[in-house]
């Protein structure tokens, strides 16, 4: 089914609303800053036969370190934008207008959700890939950068889907802008903080913190990159026992765990109260 004009107009309007000044500028600035701050200096010695493998490691490390640094900011930023999109529109009465239009509830929900997720994913991916490419530019590095970038794209998308789904759940539950935004910010920090708690502090239970939503997509990406050591190594060796597919399945699970129930609720049970 091809999207009609109303769908495209609604999507454009939602993007303009969600990414109005200075939101886009702040996002661009912070993504660029975190990427540049984590790019490794180009300095590598290898043999001619081992050059691609060496570059692969350097570029993988730069991609991973950049995304690891960006993930906290991106998750909170995404959560705040989705909260604003749902809760603010509910408070200001725009939700009522949208739901009484000829567009279906399903389309309204998906448009509002992906008007935040898709641009943020593309913006992060394009900026990170461009900066890594410019830093490591040489004849040998182009295909390596493209290969790593193609794996980074779904990871960014899946990670932001979790943040957006969680934020939609909070904002449709609380239906108030400020409490929703504050709750999302606090929850985002808490989820990140859990992944930094080591076994020295809480004992062996810290081993299982690598299965929380923050580290899971990053570990999945590190496995694809062939990176053995991740920042989560301080949480214990449990990470190395689990096969790679576990982290990918968990990533997709987290992406849908809030999104699907909230979508069903919005399309079937959600009511506007005066």
């Amino acid at each position: 089914m091809w999207p009609n004009n109303a769908l495209i107009d609604l999507f454009k309007a939602e993007i303009q609303k969600a990414w109005s000044f200075p939101i886009l500028e702040i996002a661009v600035g912070l993504i660029a800053f975190t990427t540049i701050a984590n790019i490794h200096v180009l300095l590598n010695i290898s043999t001619q036969t081992g050059l691609l493998a060496s570059f692969s490691i350097l570029i993988s490390d730069s991609f991973f370190d950049s995304l690891y640094s960006q993930m906290l900011f991106l998750s909170i930023f995404c959560g705040v934008l989705v909260s604003l999109s749902f809760a603010r529109d509910y408070e200001q009465g725009f939700m009522q207008t949208l739901l009484s239009s000829p567009v279906s509830r399903s389309v309204v929900f998906l448009v509002k959700f992906f008007a935040v997720i898709l641009p943020l994913t593309i913006l992060t991916w394009v900026m990170t890939t461009s900066i890594v490419f410019l830093n490591f530019y040489s004849g040998s590095s182009v295909m390596v950068v493209i290969e790593k970038a193609l794996w980074a794209l779904p990871v960014i998308f899946i990670a932001l889907m979790f943040c957006g789904g969680f934020a939609a759940f909070i904002s449709l539950s609380l239906k108030r802008t400020i409490p929703s935004v504050l709750t999302v910010v606090l929850a985002g920090f808490s989820i990140w903080y859990i992944s930094t708690v080591t076994s020295d502090v809480v004992g062996n239970i810290a081993n299982y913190f690598i299965l929380t939503p923050f580290p899971v997509p990053l570990i999945a990406l590190s496995r694809v990159f062939g990176r053995v050591v991740t920042p989560f190594i301080s949480l214990g060796d449990f990470e190395y026992v689990l096969p790679t597919w576990v982290f990918w399945v968990l990533s997709v699970f987290y992406a849908l765990v809030f999104l699907v129930p909230v979508y069903v609720y919005f399309t079937r049970r959600f009511e506007i109260r005066e």
């Binding site: 200096v41 180009l42 300095l43 010695i45 290898s46 043999t47 001619q48 050059l51 570059f55 040998s140």
Partner: peptide, 19 residues
Amino acid sequence: YTLGEIPVNVTHVYVVSIA
């Protein structure tokens, strides 16, 4: 950076990739 041994009368090429 150190690679394996270079045999006698054999040429090895190292690549220094640098900014």
